Simulated scan of single mutants.
Amino acid sequence: MATDPTPPSMYLEDMDEVRRVFNRFDTNNDGKISPAELGGVLKALGSESSPDEVARMMGEIDTDNDGNISLQEFAAFCSAEADPYHSAEKELREAFELYDENHDGKISAAELHKTLLRLGEHCSIEDCAGMIKPVDANGDGYVSFEEFKKMMTNNKK
């Protein structure tokens, strides 16, 4: 199995990308995702998950049952070998749909702005348009799902 060329997930091409996504969830940078951090991210993305739902999600991912999600557990959850019903691609699609409020298949600067405000980020619509521009491969001023995947998995240097 050590020579298995399967990437860690359907959309995360390598462990560096898995780590970058993990770090977005690990808001206090302690190297683990707590139930509160998971619940906070879900709430910021518009999901009104109950404490029981967050506990269920934690139970699925926290395989050593220490009450937190480690980077290794997160990588295993994101892997292509994880339950296909809860694939990383599906999770990313659900996140995209939370940004795409009018469900037209693309994220506008206004939609990005509104979501970032819910996440506690303070920026202008012009700032959001500036964030969209580098990932807007077709130049239409919007972020498609494919462009969204790139934006979510690539950190600025």
Rank of each mutant, 00 (worst) to 15 (best):
A44Y: 05
G46W: 07
G46D: 06
S47F: 14
S47Q: 12
S47H: 14
S47L: 08
E48C: 02
E48T: 04
E48Y: 02
E48P: 00
S49Y: 01
D52T: 07
D52A: 14
D52R: 12
E53A: 06
V54W: 00
A55V: 00
A55W: 01
R56H: 14
R56M: 08
M58Y: 04
M58S: 05
M58Q: 05
G59D: 15
I61R: 03
D62E: 07
D62V: 02
D62F: 01
T63A: 15
T63W: 04
T63M: 14
D64C: 06
D64S: 06
D66M: 09
G67R: 06
N68W: 05
N68Y: 13
N68V: 06
I69V: 15
I69T: 12
S70Y: 07
S70F: 09
S70E: 10
L71C: 04
Q72N: 13
Q72D: 14
E73L: 10
E73P: 11
A75D: 09
A75T: 13
A75K: 13
A75I: 09
C78G: 05
C78P: 06
C78D: 04
A80S: 14
E81D: 14
E81H: 10
E81P: 00
A82N: 15
A82H: 15
A82S: 15
D83V: 13
Y85K: 15
Y85V: 15
H86F: 15
S87R: 03
S87T: 05
K90V: 09
K90L: 09
K90G: 06
L92Q: 02
L92G: 05
